[in-house]
Design a binder for these strands. Structure first.
Lengths: 264, 264
DNA sequence: TAAAGTTATCCGAATACCGGACATATTAAT
DNA sequence: ATTAATATGTCCGGTATTCGGATAACTTTA
């Protein structure tokens, strides 16, 4: 009725495998137990067991010998290197964002959307001031729960934004300390401003942040750059400068990503 | 009869999907056409077509709108980031090998085995002397066609080495300028020395190289470090020093990878 | 305009996927 | 020890899905 429910076409076992791999990717880096997968994926247990066996045979899933936890496998990682080589956002961004982190003296994150998830594909910190943050490359969470998502929301059709939020609301609420009021306010702010910003909202109550989207030539967001700082460290002018630097970096990257290469 | 032929168990469509994805990963970064996939994978064309459709629906495969070439998709890359986060060899090696490249003033490669393939998962160059090499992160080729493979051969059971070589011989011969004599000599050298080395052999006739394996506590090779230089740039003493530095880096990495972490 | 090559679609037969039900560890509680 | 509770592993028959030969549509070359 309200939810689309339109994906009857894709191959059966492949679908199951994808759901499981995504579920594993959403889980902790230490891996997941079978029962955790049952709870989080919603698939019947025998099915999971069987599909995991197949995936293990392919090397896409591994099993910690002692703990028995399932985890994404080495062959999938190897395949990932090749897939990443064909989607070079993070590689292209490497120098620009490292320099940005250095200049801001703040940690800078790069993220992309994958279905209903946000995936962190880059983390850059100033060597002079190592700041310990919770984000790491490969981290996956519900799309909408980070400032980078807000920046991308601002450039997505409003209907799509609503669809994503509706589909993920249950997952948001599972996060400790989630404040739906503040969340909707942050989204509205982002849609109005064209970039993401918050102070003392969402999760961590002592941090503020800024994020901007990287747009393709048609205006569709393909990634987002975000940065976090202790609330109060930046006054309004400082915030403005920070925002401008982010925007500059984003447009520079967009240009480099979508620039036509001269015919060789 | 002679070949094992023992893999009847894994799920059908998953198997097909894996073969296709691997075939795509082996192909150029620009993607592959359907007919190329037919030739290289050996699967019937309608099957490929159907499975690719499913894979595209999942976001694991994409299609260049104008050229019609198939390629590994963005969602697979996103999944790859998570898988790589759980197999941190490249991350752990980052600083050590960058320093090594700087010290040697040569390009240093890091590679792992995936089935019958070698995958390049790291490339480190000295900023002071940028050297253009053919290897890039994500590059995938038949296992055995690089020095890093030789280094790993040296620590694999001889029977397994023979199996790999037999299985890949047809692929070797497809490479222009392949010299079977020299290849076997290089393998024998590696098995004897415990590390990989060549001068003017295999492919590029003006380069020499050195490579050593990274071993897990049981002695099994998990990755290899390799470096290339113009033949003649290093005399015997220089070669020896270079080898020692590689071996030092390899053992340092092994130690860091398999060191028990103190309970937190 | 024909011929060669590449891509897309049908569709019946055969297969291997599906998951409820059951059996077997493994851990926790009495 | 014994029971209870939880997690993991295995069977197996019905049926939905996959399989690929055959054919059609489309595109480039001669």
């Amino acid at each position: 009725m309200s939810t689309p429910e339109t994906s009857p076409q894709a191959a059966g076992s492949l679908n199951r495998a994808t759901i499981l791999l995504t579920t594993l990717a959403r889980g902790s880096r230490k891996g997941s137990t079978l029962t955790e997968l049952v709870k989080r994926s919603g698939l019947p247990r025998p099915t999971i067991h069987r599909v995991l066996d197949s995936l293990m045979e392919l090397g896409w899933v591994e099993r910690e010998p002692d703990s028995g936890r399932y985890n994404l496998g080495a062959d999938l990682a190897a395949l990932g290197y090749s897939a990443i080589a064909r989607h070079p956002i993070a590689r292209v961004a490497e120098t620009t964002l490292s320099a940005l982190a250095e200049s801001l003296r703040q940690v800078v994150y790069l993220g992309v959307r994958s279905g209903l998830d946000m995936v962190c594909i880059g983390r850059y910190e100033s060597p002079s001031q190592i700041q310990i943050g919770k984000g790491y490359v490969g981290l996956r969470g519900p799309f909408g729960m980070s400032l980078s998502c807000m920046a991308m929301f601002a450039h997505l059709p409003e209907a799509e934004v609503q669809d994503i939020i509706n589909a993920n609301m249950a997952r948001y609420h599972r996060i400790e300390g989630f404040d739906e009021q503040g969340f909707h306010r942050t989204v509205a702010d982002a849609m109005r401003n064209g970039y993401g910003t918050y102070d003392n909202i969402i999760l961590d109550r002592s941090t503020s942040g800024l994020a901007v989207a990287i747009l393709d030539p048609s205006g569709h967001p393909v990634a987002a750059i975000g940065t976090t700082y202790i609330t109060g460290w930046l006054d309004d002018a400082g915030k403005q400068r920070c925002l401008e630097q982010l925007q500059l970096a984003a447009s520079k990257l967009a240009q480099r990503l979508f620039m036509e290469l001269p015919a060789s």
